[in-house]
Design a protein around this nucleic acid. Structure first.
Lengths: 215, 215, 215, 215
DNA sequence: GATGAATGAGTCTTCATTCAT
DNA sequence: GATGAATGAAGACTCATTCAT
């Protein structure tokens, strides 16, 4: 608008650089969160890992938590882009064990590539601070689980559905965490256990059979 | 009070006072860990809560983690004293649901009275520092679970047994955590879910029937 | 609007835009200085308030203090334009109380509309940095007061005149400040006190009677 | 009590050291406040000036403002100790000019020795932050002025008395500030102006004559 | 002229730990 | 054993200013 004659205007280029920096910072944050956990990850360390000064970090994020929130959002979005079909009706109507495979396998695979996911989903150990960082992932995933359960067991009262989803979610989270703490065959074996746990827990509530869903 | 001239020798008295101080400090630590979580609990805060100076604290514990470790040990011991019979053969040979009631109810009740238990069992969110603090409770409880499972399913390969125990343990830990985050009826409902999850998970492995055990 | 193709030449247009920008920035600065005081007003905040980038701000002012200086100059100029007749011979020759009314009332009224005036006239609390910012307003006003006093009391030695002017000026400044800290009737009452203070101070030196002045 | 046989017990000695450190820190703060003003005085600078680490400073004061408050309190106390008789009935009943001499001279002299007084009484330039630091000195002194005025002019309505005291106080403060900015004869001359200003302002309200006061 | 990213020293404050008494 | 002062590195965050585009 002002003075640009070039094809890609200056403001646009600047904006692009901004996006790149944010990505860079989020990458660094992911790395540091993994190494140290949320609490011990320092903003200065994140900046250093990103190769920028602390001031730069704060040009993009107002505080440490915002970094976690953005990272969480980016992770969620990437996961949905990569495996958005996990919670589709097609999957949800499969027999329970197939359904769990269809839903969990992509998520697990995503976690292997993005270990920051687990770091975030655990958040700080401080009781009060339920941590918006945690919230983002938590809320989104849990809503999906709730929806899936509602589809499979429409007669379940809402509050009970919430409890089941919540419980299923923490089982998933901790089972995954366990798996990630191991390698190779052991990890695979823990994933088997995780699925067994979810199957065992959910079967009485939502049944094991294939199940036509309709909204 | 302090300097009584009773028959008991001076060293013994000193030792007794030491025990009292440690108990005092551990009580304070429990309280602070509950309020703040492990990471944000400062040794100064613990000392203040105990009504002693930081220097005194370090006369009994070499560092922050040692406090957590000792607290964990004391909690374990108190739990065993109060509910040592939880994992007895009698209980372990009950039908699965009865067994879970028999084992979990005392532990849950103990947690209600000692919320520091949960704070410790979660420990710092720092990955590396899987925290000897956590370890104490973890290890002890898990061993008990392993034993129980071995009794119920002696043919299970050892490594599989470990995985099952580990998985069952995290389900228990997180389910309990969920319950403690709620109150009254909601808490009770979450406990029901917790038991349902464990039942569902363990039934295929260790069976639901009563089961005579023998060492 | 910006890029109109009118007769006026490009450089002139650019210069006009420059003036507009400066005005814009000074307005923003006035607003921020009022809200935060000189010290806590950040250049970034001023730029933001003006709706421009920090870089742009520094294209017009070499540093924070220059902004204050320019703002001071603009305020002085606006005040002279609006109430330039305050220190005219006609006013200065009035009886003391009428003279104070004639001089102070417009200035006070100007301050009501331009509260940045007070913010500037106080400047940073830093001793060394008696602050050119402050200086501008200070110097100009004080010179006028000196002139008025010289006219009323030509026989007064110069250095004494300076002291009287200086003292009268700070009385005025702080009295005004006090008035601005209150509202409505209370403010009016403080203005009465301000005038009483100046009358009481100046009467012995420059007399209360009307006084023909001549240069 | 515990193990001390010495004349001055260990705890007492420790407490003494604490007091000494606080005094040391307040001295340092006074010095830094004078050099830099309240706003630019950094807690680290104060600690450095006191020859201790930042942590030590925070063992005695919870934050920067508390330092200022304590310093203000100490200054007030020292002033009262040194010149507590300034506002006595004897002085207040003198003729106005004698009264001002009797009251102001000691205060002025105190300021010469404790220039931090002025730094504190001005406080940060931030508008909102009326600064408890400032408050301490302000409030105490103003109350004394109010009392003196009430004694001299008992018929004055209370709110008017407050305004007069407030105005007189700021005249004093700024006049003193002016004097402190100069040296030698010039300073003396400014003190003369200060007294003239107060005399001129107060005479109409509280009269110039000696005045028997009674409570 | 305009932009906004980049800087980096500096601010206040905390905390695990040590040490003289 | 007990005290509490002392430490100092570290943390989150700010801001005047510069620079590439």
């Amino acid at each position: 608008m002002e003075e640009d004659i070039s094809a890609t205007s200056a403001p646009r280029r600047r904006q692009a650089r901004g996006k790149r920096r944010m990505a860079q910072l989020l990458d660094a944050a992911a790395s540091v969160f993994c190494k140290c956990g949320y609490t011990k990850a320092s903003t200065n360390a994140i900046a250093r890992e990103a190769g920028v000064s602390p001031g730069t970090l704060y040009q993009f994020f107002p505080n440490k938590e915002a970094i976690a929130v953005h990272l969480g959002e980016r992770l969620m979005q990437q996961m949905l882009e990569a495996h958005g079909q996990a919670f589709t009706d097609a999957n949800v109507s499969l027999p329970l064990d197939k359904m769990l495979d269809a839903i969990l396998d992509p998520i697990i695979e995503f976690n292997l590539r993005n270990p920051a996911f687990l770091a975030l989903i655990h958040g700080p150990d401080t009781p009060g601070e339920i941590a918006s960082s945690k919230q983002v992932l938590h809320a989104t995933l849990q809503r999906q689980v709730e929806e899936a359960i509602t589809l499979r067991a429409p007669e379940l009262p809402h509050d009970q559905c919430v409890r089941v989803a919540t419980t299923a979610f923490v089982i998933f989270r901790e089972g995954l965490s366990l798996a990630m703490q191991h390698q190779g065959a052991e990890r695979a074996a823990y994933i088997v256990e995780l699925k067994a746990a979810l199957t065992g827990y959910l079967a009485p509530t939502i049944g094991t059979e294939a199940h036509a869903v309709r909204h």
